[in-house]
Nucleic acid binder design. Structure first.
Lengths: 134, 134
DNA sequence: ATTGCAGTTTACGTTAACGTAAGTTATATT
DNA sequence: AATATAACTTACGTTAACGTAAACTGCAAT
């Protein structure tokens, strides 16, 4: 097997995801990331990159770092005892409910935006026709 | 026509939307709401209620008060000159893009949650079967 | 040898979105 | 008339999520 050993520097990731290095370090302070070290320097793995991606996506849909953190930790439980797994399933259910709610909210908003846009465009039509009849 | 003059007190609205009165007053400080007054007391109209609903929904999907404010102000432009309307259409387009993005993000997350859940449940199955074979 | 990056730590600053507390006022009820 | 209740204003406090600045380190190229 070829070793999948692609790694990233902090600024590479910052660049790719459009955040600052400070932000990435902050996520580490919040225990969302725990990159390896080469001396002082942080070395990010593919797994770290994926976690960061989750965080950034989470932010876009309004998740707090805490919430993203919980989701991330779910993906690497390590300890798979029954109790732990059951709590995970519960948490997943709750998350899904919240997200479904968001889906509905967003759809509603999109609908309203569409109606608003149609209204605007109609008004524009009228105003422009009126202007032609100088 | 029967006058649609239903009004609301601040605590009625707070109750209905599950926020504190302080929060509602804060939205006023941020110029998102401008209720009538009866002496000192704030009197909220149906229109105010709808605005509050928009804000609360906006919060759920991660909009800032600023953004919700902009959306709200769009729904009551009052001044319908061509320039204004064109800017509105632009803003609507941008909002729609952002929301569409969120829709995709959320769908992706839901997919991942589903897969994670299936994984969990499978593991649970296995663990429980193993337990039975005591 | 020095200049210049890229990265690091430490620490204080900032903004948004309220929370919380203190003291005041108005209306309604006993 | 006294008390309760709901609302009000003013103002300082808090939390999350970074920004920003200062001072240090290690390696690379001139």
């Amino acid at each position: 097997m070829a070793k999948e050993t692609r790694t990233y520097s902090i600024s590479e990731l910052a660049q790719e995801f459009g955040v600052t290095t400070r932000t990435i370090r902050h996520y580490e302070d919040m225990r969302l990331l725990l990159p390896e070290r080469q001396g002082q320097r942080r070395i990010y793995s593919l797994a770290d990159r994926i976690k960061l991606k989750l965080i950034v996506r989470g932010k876009r849909i309004g998740l707090s770092l805490q919430e993203s953190g919980e989701l991330i930790h779910m993906y690497e439980p390590g300890k798979s005892n029954v109790n732990q797994l059951e709590r995970m399933v519960e948490y997943i259910g709750a998350s899904r409910q919240k997200l479904s709610r968001q889906l509905r909210d967003i759809s509603t908003m999109l609908d309203e935006l569409n109606r608003a846009e149609t209204g605007c465009k109609n008004e524009l039509e009228i105003l422009r026709k009126a202007a032609k009849q100088k």
